[in-house]
Design a protein around this nucleic acid. Structure first.
Length: 954
RNA sequence: GCCCGAGUGGCGGAAUGGCAGACGCGACGGAUUCAAAAUCCGUUGUCCGAAAGGGCGUGUGGGUUCGAGUCCCACCUCGGGCACCA
């Protein structure tokens, strides 16, 4: 049997004419999909604007359910792609039946590198490709029966979408971060403060004395979107800047294998670091998976410590440390090779060595420098600095294990308290001084005698110890026992004596926001003759991406590190040069020729679903308030459920939170967070097979025999991972529609396991879900005549009780997105119904109706069909979800296990609320229990009423 | 190296600290059929046993508890994230 073989084709000739087969399913499904579209079944009402229908939303709570929108790939879908979309569709349909006004749709993230790269290889314009890909994906997804409001589907490349991406950029550009109020404010308010003198200008001169250019520069330095020289990966051979992910470990381009150079270039940045604390702290309020929160916390990387000034001949050297308590143990300083003071500190004797070392470091790739398996290297600069706590002269080194981009790019090295410093000190024979006496257990663990003499230590000690040798005339840490206490003490001293201050640094960097590409949103920015950036007025948005026949980047001499990129847009000189009136008459300006990164559109797209055609606002404020809502009890506001892959844990989910907070601060949105509840769906994985030469062979043709795999008689090896064209293991939804129908396919994907777990695809297993639907269909429809076999006779009580147990369980599991156990419960109930139908040849309406209702979120087409056959003229979509009757949930009797010493030895049947004495008496009367008890003494009796009895004997 | 997450039948997976293996696949047996497919019914953790029944079982080793897949400690394996962040 092959792993993913298709079952033998059914023979329609011998099949009963009304069997629920793939053929019948296809007929039902396409009919209902057309009906839904004609009737606008999934059109969701807004409280205002063109989509308003206040009557339909009256009294209903709202549920805004969003999938992470896809990039419209040309490769088409495989069965792994729709997993999350099916999950959200089932949930959305469930919530509709629970009386919620549900908004669910899907847009397309169409700008960016993949589309552009594809265009470059094929020579087809990205717009053409993008549009045909979107059309194809819409077709494939429509066939799945997703209940989306199609009127609200948007694409980030639509002009009336990216108009608002540009508008939001201008909001960010037009804002600054007030560190006192801890929020973004409009740049005009900053100007007012400067003008009034309530806020001093950077150099202290009155605002009125600054020239226009000077004012412009001061204001620009405060903006949340700003220009700066930032190091980038410049690849002249491709004519473009590359993302870190696109550069190989050897420092060459992933595509084309050209050299890549680190260079500073003028780039747009977003001041996300201003929001570091809020992005970190607000995580606590979100209903997100803990691992994702943890990844964001690590990414932001807040570390609390101190800056300490060490004086030197070239001025003060600021170091950052998280362990100010170890200051007395600092025996040398280390500067990053890029540190601006390196040159001025270097002595003439050491100049050659230092320059050589820095040049080597500059030539290295980040990945090389960060390979911590290698030995630490560094060079003495020939100068010393003074430790402010004890006046010690400590040598200054330059070493590439210190990074310029973190803290101050300079550290104080405490070899006794930091493993990296310890290794460096051992390599260069630098002194190691203990400032804390480790506990005896630490010495035992390392098999050495307790001693403060670090010469015997095998490594640094980083825990809590008793402080020693840590005092000067005005402060002493000696005798303290905790890092926290010692740190507080020494920071107070540093601040009092102006040697430093407590401070917090972050691993998070500002966001590099420009790309030297074509397929992205143009910046709404122009430059004047002095090079000052100006915002394009709102009234002139969108700044359209100009049509460009040759959209390829200009390739340059691959080895010329000093060349400059020529972004595609720079070549259209009649576009880049523009005359406009920015309030001081028509002038000539030069447009920004970079474009925004792929992330820009995805930072806010969900809000455009709310009001997709609005041409005066990015979203009508009333509509925004209704769907995104302000925070309330246990809810941060924003999207109610956001489902997508874990790969967006940091970048997209951090950038979008940042933009949302800026919009909140400026009063444009009513919630502080965009996504209240986040759920990461797992991935569908698949087996792939390779022959002896390592070539992938078609997985569908591989034969398994006793755990060995072969293809065409040749033995092949199996691996487990992604589905991919090159692995020849792709299974498409279209194949599943063809063989089983969309409802069976949906059901299988939901039944494979919990939604957040990854699982292997097995086409062989799909048939189980089809059999279930066949049995369910047969329980209501005669396979030979097509007649309904449903009667109005009441169901037997036992079946009714089973139904209500099922309702209660299904409802709870639906709410928790546990669709796999929902399906198990429905199958169990349907199996019980089958027994009844087999005996009576009829199906009681009072259990069939709720069964169809419960099935409808999972298998909407089949449910609609049965619903109509049961005599309803309207869709089942908005029917109330069945409610479990508490009376029918109570059992008259329950079977209870009787344990002897924790092992089951018998069973009793009793009333669920029988008391302890009754249960024990019943238990002792059971033969097997009595036998086990014979001659023994019961020393303890544990009874959980309605659940179990345990007799402890000896 | 550090930080997360996960280990349950032949396979995917179920189990508020209370009958381990729900449900599905596969396999085996039977009904139906000229025959097969499809469909329906039954069996299916493992070992001993003819059976009744019993022993053993949730990665490994300890612990808490009347009772542990579930809680605690240590370890092993796999998956993921970060990676000289001072």
């Amino acid at each position: 049997m092959t792993e993913s073989a298709t079952p033998p084709a059914q023979s329609p000739a011998n099949m009963p004419p009304y069997r629920y087969s793939a053929r019948l399913a296809a007929e039902i499904e396409s009919r209902w999909q057309d009906l839904w579209e004609q009737r606008g079944t999934f059109h969701t009402p807004n409280p205002a604007g063109p989509l308003a229908d206040t009557a339909r939303l009256a009294g209903k709570p709202k549920a805004f359910i969003v999938d992470m929108f896809p990039y419209p790939s040309g490769a088409g879908l495989h069965v792994g792609h729709p997993l999350g979309y099916i999950g959200t569709d089932v949930y959305a349909r469930f919530k509709r039946m629970k009386g919620f006004n549900v908004l669910h749709t899907l847009g397309y993230d169409s700008f960016g590198l993949p589309a552009e790269q594809h265009a470059i290889t094929t020579g087809i314009h990205p717009r053409i490709n993008t549009e045909s890909n979107i059309a194809n994906m819409r077709r494939q997804l429509r066939r799945l029966g997703l209940g989306h409001d199609q009127r609200r589907s948007v694409s980030t490349t639509d002009e009336d979408f990216y108009k608002w991406t540009q508008w939001i950029f201008l909001q960010v550009h037009g804002a600054w971060y007030d560190t006192e109020q801890k929020r973004a404010r409009r740049i005009e308010e900053l100007v007012t403060e400067f003008d009034k003198g309530t806020r001093p200008t950077p150099d202290g001169r009155p605002w009125s004395q600054l020239t226009t250019n000077e004012r412009h520069q001061v204001i620009d330095s405060y903006r949340l979107a700003y220009l700066t020289d930032a190091p980038v990966n410049w690849c002249p051979g491709l004519g473009t800047i590359l993302a870190n992910e696109e550069v190989t470990a050897e420092g060459r381009s992933d595509i084309g294998n050209y050299p890549v150079f680190k260079r500073n270039m003028r780039q747009w940045m977003m001041r996300i670091t201003s929001y570091a604390d809020r992005l970190l702290d607000d995580l606590d309020r979100l209903d997100w998976p803990e691992p994702i929160k943890l990844m964001q916390r690590n990414w932001i990387g807040r570390s609390v410590g101190a800056r300490v000034a060490f004086s030197s001949s070239a001025g003060n050297i600021d170091v950052f440390t998280t362990r100010p308590d170890t200051l007395f143990g600092a025996t040398f300083l280390v500067l990053s090779p890029e540190h601006p003071m390196v040159a001025s500190l270097t002595s003439p004797e050491q100049r050659d060595a230092v320059e050589r070392y820095c040049a080597q470091a500059a030539a290295k790739q980040d990945s090389e420098r960060q390979d911590d398996s290698k030995e630490k290297t560094g060079v003495f600069v020939g100068a010393t600095a003074t430790n402010p706590v004890n006046g010690t002269q400590v040598p200054i080194y330059v070493a590439d294990y210190v990074l310029m981009g973190y803290g101050t790019g300079a550290i104080m090295a405490v070899p006794s308290g930091d493993q990296r410093d310890f290794e460096f000190a051992r390599t260069y024979n630098l002194p190691i001084v203990a400032t804390a006496m480790p506990p005896d257990s630490w010495f035992e663990q390392h098999d050495i005698a307790p001693s403060a003499n670090c010469s015997t230590w095998p490594c640094a000690f980083t825990g809590d110890g008793v402080y020693i040798d840590s005092a000067n005339s005005s402060v002493s840490l000696n005798g303290l026992t905790s890092i926290e206490e010692a740190s507080t003490t020494i920071v107070e001293w540093l601040e009092k004596n102006s040697h430093g201050q407590g401070t917090t640094t972050y691993r998070l960097r500002d966001w590099l926001f420009s790309r030297q590409r074509y397929w992205g949103e143009p910046f709404p920015i122009v430059y004047d003759e002095d090079g000052n950036a100006h915002a394009v007025p709102e009234s002139q948005l969108p700044v359209l991406l100009p049509e460009l026949a040759d959209f390829k980047p200009t390739a340059l001499d691959p080895n010329d590190a000093d060349s400059d990129p020529i972004p595609p847009l720079a070549r259209i000189t009649d576009w880049t040069q523009v005359t406009m009136d920015l309030g001081d008459g028509p002038r000539s300006y030069r447009r920004e020729v970079n474009v925004m990164p792929q992330w820009a559109g995805s930072c806010w797209y969900e809000m455009r679903y709310l009001d997709p055609t609005n041409d005066t606002h990015f979203v009508n404020p009333e509509v925004e308030k209704y769907w995104m809502g302000p925070a309330h009890e246990g809810h941060t506001g924003g999207v109610d459920l956001y489902v997508g892959g874990v790969e967006h844990a940091v970048l997209h989910l951090l950038y979008s939170r940042f933009w949302h907070k800026v919009l909140y601060d400026l009063g444009h949105v009513s919630s502080e967070e965009p996504f209240h509840r986040l759920f990461n769906q797992g991935y569908i994985q698949a087996y792939a097979y390779r022959d002896a030469r390592g070539q992938a062979v078609p997985a569908a043709e591989v034969v398994e025999n006793n755990g060995a795999y072969s293809w065409n008689g040749e033995s092949v090896s199996r691996e487990y991972g992604k589905m991919g064209k090159s692995l020849k293991n792709i299974v498409t939804p279209d194949e599943m529609y063809e063989e089983f129908g969309a409802d069976t396919f949906r059901l299988y994907e939901m039944s494979m396991g919990p939604l957040d777990a990854s699982r292997p695809w097995n086409t062989r297993d799909v048939v189980g879900m089809q059999r279930f639907l066949q049995r369910l269909w047969r329980n209501m429809v005669d396979e030979d005549t097509g007649d309904l076999i449903v009667t109005n006779d009441p169901a037997p009580e036992e079946l009714l009780r089973h139904l209500h147990r099922t309702i209660a369980g299904v409802e709870a599991d639906m709410d928790g997105l546990r669709f796999n156990t929902v399906i198990a419960k429905l199958i169990e109930f349907n199996n019980a119904l089958t027994q009844h139908v087999t005996q009576t040849h009829s199906s009681p309406r009072d259990v069939v109706v709720p069964l169809v209702q419960m099935l409808s979120p999972l298998c909407p087409h089949l449910a609609e069909e049965l619903w109509a056959r049961l005599g309803h003229s309207d869709t089942v979509t908005y029917e109330p979800f069945p409610v479990a009757d508490p009376e029918l949930l109570k059992e008259d009797t329950v079977e209870i296990p009787v344990q002897i010493n924790g092992k089951v030895r018998g069973r009793i049947v009793a009333s669920p609320d029988a008391d302890q004495d009754t249960l024990v008496a019943l238990a002792q009367a059971v033969d097997s229990v009595a036998a086990a008890l014979a001659g023994k003494q019961i020393v303890k009796t544990i009874v959980v009423p309605g659940r179990m009895v345990n007799l402890v004997i000896k």
